[in-house]
Amino acid sequence: KVVEWLNDPRVNFQKVDVRNHEATVEQMRGYDVVMDGTTITLNGLSTACIAEAGCCGVNLNGFGEEEASN
């Protein structure tokens, strides 16, 4: 709904499975910014994917041990 509301061709929504690290990294490659909407228990997995894909990440649910990936 947010993508539709923004109506901007630079914005995209991708559903990923952060438990499948390699596939998620490949899906993220080429994006400048990833907005991470996973549950807080998955932050470590999602942050690792974002970092390896070379994207900037915005965590939408809080911060924890993933700060070590900066």
Rank of each mutant, 00 (worst) to 15 (best):
21 H>Q: 15
12 N>A: 15
33 V>H: 05
39 T>V: 13
11 V>W: 07
41 T>N: 11
1 K>F: 09
45 L>D: 01
44 G>P: 01
54 G>K: 08
59 N>V: 06
35 M>H: 03
16 V>M: 06
20 N>S: 14
51 A>W: 07
20 N>Y: 07
40 I>Y: 06
54 G>N: 09
37 G>F: 06
59 N>P: 09
9 P>E: 13
24 T>I: 13
5 W>F: 15
1 K>A: 13
34 V>N: 05
9 P>H: 12
20 N>D: 14
37 G>A: 13
60 L>Q: 02
56 C>Q: 10
24 T>V: 04
25 V>T: 03
47 T>C: 02
8 D>N: 15
13 F>Y: 15
10 R>L: 10
1 K>M: 12
35 M>F: 00
46 S>H: 04
21 H>N: 11
50 I>A: 01
50 I>R: 01
29 R>E: 13
53 A>K: 02
13 F>T: 13
18 V>N: 04
42 L>A: 13
26 E>G: 12
17 D>C: 14
38 T>L: 11
39 T>P: 13
41 T>I: 09
43 N>M: 12
40 I>T: 08
69 S>T: 07
22 E>N: 12
62 G>C: 09
23 A>M: 07
28 M>D: 00
60 L>W: 04
33 V>R: 02
27 Q>S: 10
20 N>C: 13
67 E>P: 07
27 Q>C: 09
65 E>P: 11
35 M>W: 00
24 T>R: 10
21 H>L: 10
52 E>H: 06
54 G>C: 05
12 N>Y: 09
20 N>E: 12
62 G>Q: 03
11 V>R: 14
44 G>S: 07
52 E>V: 01
25 V>I: 07
10 R>W: 08
39 T>L: 14
49 C>Y: 00
60 L>C: 09
17 D>F: 08
28 M>G: 05
